[in-house]
Design a protein around this nucleic acid. Structure first.
Lengths: 249, 249
DNA sequence: CCAAAAGTGTTGATGCTACACCCATGA
DNA sequence: TCATGGGTGTAGCATCAACACTTTTGG
């Protein structure tokens, strides 16, 4: 289905860009691609960008985001959520961006509105595809992301805010961890993403009280200290019970 | 500037749609337009839709939303916030929608992605423009909105969720009220939008504690009971202090 | 035996909920 | 004088924050 797409099947006005977050146990990572190499061009531009693409005219937005990520990770069915639309007139106007657009886009001057998505992945499951496109993909430390192409720093800032809010309000942190994990990984995950220093005992007590965790009989292996018990996430319907009356914060 | 726009200056792939919320003291209202009359056509289709339009190719998204609302209310500079992008392939596919598109759109079959915005207005300030376009605009009770055209029920559902969340977390309720208002209007506003029955005394205590309200020396007039003191909103930087640690809800 | 992280309770303070009566005004 | 909503305080309960030492394992 990808193969029989044609250039004139492309919607030249709308793209998707994906912010893929991962967690390696220590820091938050973001998937970035080197845009020049992406089409095996090389004009010395090593600008990093978020993975993204123009959509096809007969393709749903979220499908387009999935397609981009499938190409990168080889994995379908990622957790995906829309960040929003980014459409300012100058979002593609940097000089280096224009050079790149001229090289690879059929209609380089087209005004493109992009729809941002973010994904949460377990960084170990989805080892980046070794071939082609994916060879030029890197996991960048979130705190070390430099200037990206286009308006991608803006998209990324919006994404991290969404992620933080989600982390406060919904059980999504688990999506960044493997199936079995010690509680302290979850703890450092929260501290890292929220850049806070939560009280460890209070954190553990509360996270257990949510009922989303089940202890297993497995323990860490190969660690140079007392191995921690592994827990797993329990799927259960999360009631976003809006009985938290009003409260500004 | 509107007058020298041309048809070929239109971006036929992207539109904006606006959910305008108002509050009349009793119930939440939404601004809807009768789409057929909108261009002075009349084929018996009285379907209601959210106000919206295709964007111009040289127009920022939010500017497009502002333009649509300016046309309706005559007022510029509304509080506007993006809801998100809506782009499913069948969002314009209902039979009646297609009839309408054939009538008014230069490229009726174009696949259009729309960006939703919502606005909060003081329903009394912005009396709908009496002329032209606006004559066919109505304030519909939120709970009585029927089936709208296109995917506009979907957009509206997304908007109300955003509004509720914002009401919980940020001082935005004031935007729906006039400059001076009695506390009970604010109270019923919260109860109406959150459809809850907050304890009145606890609500008043907490809303005052936020420091966003200042009492004035003015009182209600013309009410058949003890006139309530009027308050006004205090503009001050709202620190979305993320010191509410983690907590699922 | 040493290093490293795991695991584990209590207390005081704060904030939340629940609850009912009198007052001021206009008609 | 009556009807209507305005305005006001407290007490018990639940939740949160702060805080440190012992245990287990691997090396």
């Amino acid at each position: 289905m990808e193969s029989n797409r044609k250039t004139n099947n492309i919607n030249h006005s709308v793209s998707v860009d994906c912010v893929v977050f991962g967690f390696d146990g220590f820091s938050l990572k973001v998937l970035l691609v080197q845009r020049d190499l992406r089409d095996n061009l090389d004009n010395g531009d090593d600008t990093l960008v978020l993975p993204g693409d123009l959509i096809y005219i007969d393709e749903d937005l979220e499908d387009a985001a999935s397609r981009v990520l499938l190409d990168l990770t080889g994995i379908d069915n990622l957790f995906l959520e829309q960040i929003g639309a980014f459409g300012s007139l100058n979002r593609l106007a940097k000089d280096r961006d224009k050079v790149w657009l001229d090289l690879v886009r059929p209609i380089p001057e087209s005004r493109v509105i992009t729809i941002g998505y973010f994904a949460l992945v377990n960084i170990k499951n989805y080892t980046i595809r070794p071939a082609g496109f994916a060879k030029h993909v890197i996991w960048e430390d979130f705190n070390e992301v430099g200037e990206l192409g286009f308006d991608h720093n803006h998209i990324l800032r919006t994404a991290i805010i969404k992620l933080r809010n989600k982390l406060y309000h919904e059980p999504v942190g688990f999506k960044l961890l493997p199936k079995y994990f010690p509680l302290n990984h979850l703890y450092t995950l929260y501290n890292t993403i929220l850049n806070s220093k939560l009280d460890r005992r209070n954190f553990l007590r509360r996270i257990l009280k949510t009922g989303f965790l089940k202890e297993t009989d497995n323990f860490q292996e190969g660690v140079p200290h007392k191995p921690a018990r592994l827990y797993k996430f329990i799927e259960k319907e999360f009631e976003n019970d809006n009985n938290h009356k009003f409260k500004f914060y």
